[in-house]
Amino acid sequence: MPTAADPSLSHPQPDPPAVAGVARSDVRILLAADRPAARCFATKLLRDSGYRVEVAVDGFDVLGMLAEVKPDLLLLDGRMPRLDGFQVCALVKRHPGFAAMPVLILSDGGSLFARVRARLAGAWSCLPKPFTAEELLQAVSSALVHG
Rank of each mutant, 00 (worst) to 15 (best):
P2M: 13
A100I: 01
M101K: 10
R52D: 12
P17I: 08
A139H: 03
F86Q: 00
H95F: 03
M80Q: 04
M1P: 13
L63C: 09
D84N: 15
K44F: 08
E134M: 13
L45N: 10
F41P: 02
G109W: 08
D48K: 12
C89H: 01
M1R: 08
E135A: 15
R94L: 07
P36L: 14
L30A: 07
A23T: 09
L106W: 07
S10A: 14
P12W: 06
R47D: 05
E134Y: 11
A100D: 14
K44L: 12
P71L: 01
D77H: 04
I105G: 02
P16Y: 04
L104A: 04
T3W: 04
A100C: 05
D61N: 11
Q13I: 09
D15R: 15
A42W: 07
I105P: 04
R115M: 12
A18R: 11
P71N: 04
K129H: 06
D72I: 00
V57P: 00
P16E: 15
A42G: 05
A38P: 00
D108I: 06
D84W: 02
F60T: 11
L74P: 00
A133H: 13
M80I: 03
A32F: 03
F113N: 10
M65D: 02
S125Y: 09
G97A: 13
I105K: 02
R39Y: 05
M80V: 05
A90T: 00
L136A: 04
D61Y: 04
L66W: 05
F41D: 04
E134I: 11
D26N: 15
S125H: 13
T43L: 10
R24F: 10
R52V: 10
R119P: 00
F86D: 05
L136G: 01
A37D: 15
L106R: 05
A23K: 14
R28I: 00
D58L: 00
